[in-house]
Amino acid sequence: MSVGVPVERIDAAGQASVGESPVWRAAEEAFYWVDIPAQKIVRLHVGTGVRSEWVLPEKVACIAFDRAGRVLAGMETGLFSVTLPEAGGAAGASVTVPSSQVRKLAAPVFPAEGMRFNDGRCDRQGRFWAGTMVQDMSLASPLGALFCFDAAGALSAPVVDALITQNGLAWSPDGTTMYLSDSHPLKRLIWAFDFDVESGTPRNRRVFADLHDYAGRPDGAAVDADGCYWTCANDAGLLLRFTPEGKLDRQIAVPAVKPSMCAFGGRNLDTLFVASIRPGAGATDDDGAVFAIRAGVRGLPEPEYAGAL
């Protein structure tokens, strides 16, 4: 079950405090991710090793792209359209995004102070899904919820509620199964839903995997071309691969103790990029880094937001 495949640390990517939401942009041959507390979107051109970053006006936790290359970002106070200015050609370039290029699209009614969006991505039809959470995880507050932002620009009411630390969004290759997790230590559950691709409605929620039976907490995830679900086992330094039937069939160790989210990329979508978190105490040089893994499987193209930003 444990697979000894090479795990490469991408030194050119630098390190993040809380690296999340990796996205491969095939048109640019570039890998994007965010650093939540630093309020940054980061890009690495894999071929050239050029790294650029954009600083936003508030914490950014999840991103997707539309067909024009604009960013749909889940942030502290809502969902935003972000147009990234040219970062220049120098490695390490940092650009502050002007307020004129950051526009709020929608926001839920947050039931408490100190909340923000967390994990988010598009379904196969191009609707953007993202969940909210109370940022102070020590409160174990079940006030988080999952929302859908459709192609017409409408934000739904809560679709799934009573979440502490929403995570793990992903869809099966045909889009008819939706996955969602709660990574809080008190939960550690991954659910599967039947998903109506026409209406965008998840139904028949059931436990897909209970990580109390394994190691770590289920953080961000990705689905491969075989329909298997890869989750980052935060606090355990592992990637876990579950078959569509919910059976663990593979695990890969990574040097960072807190892998946070993974995404397939590269020209053939055969590289698994893994972002990670740098813990507050006892961090090593690998914590907060980005890793590349040739896991022997291919991924699926990341869907773009189908609406206009």
Rank of each mutant, 00 (worst) to 15 (best):
M1R: 14
V3F: 12
P6W: 02
A12N: 08
A12R: 15
Q15L: 12
V18S: 00
G19N: 05
V23T: 11
A27F: 01
Y32L: 15
W33N: 11
A38S: 14
V50N: 10
P57K: 10
A61D: 03
C62G: 05
A64N: 05
R67A: 12
R70L: 03
R70M: 10
F80I: 08
T83E: 14
G88V: 07
G89P: 11
A91F: 03
G92K: 07
V95G: 12
S100L: 12
R103H: 14
R103T: 15
K104T: 15
F110I: 12
E113P: 02
M115F: 06
M115Q: 12
R116D: 06
N118C: 01
D119A: 07
R121S: 10
R124G: 00
F128E: 06
A130N: 11
M133S: 08
M137F: 12
S138N: 11
A140T: 10
S141Q: 12
P142Q: 01
P142L: 00
L143D: 13
F147N: 13
D150E: 06
D150V: 08
P158F: 01
D161G: 09
A162C: 12
A162W: 04
Q166K: 00
D174H: 11
D174I: 10
Y179K: 05
Y179N: 02
S183A: 10
R188H: 11
W191P: 06
W191T: 09
A192N: 11
F193W: 03
F193L: 03
F195M: 01
E198S: 13
E198R: 13
R203P: 05
R206K: 07
H212W: 08
D213T: 13
Y214G: 00
G220M: 04
C228Y: 02
Y229F: 13
W230M: 07
D235G: 00
L238E: 13
T243N: 09
T243R: 08
K247W: 05
L248C: 09
Q251F: 10
Q251I: 02
P259W: 03
P259S: 04
S260A: 15
S260E: 10
C262G: 10
A263Q: 14
R267V: 11
N268P: 03
D270W: 02
D270C: 01
V274M: 04
P279R: 09
A281V: 15
G282Q: 07
D286W: 05
D287R: 05
I293F: 06
A295P: 01
A295F: 00
A306V: 08
G307C: 01
L309S: 11
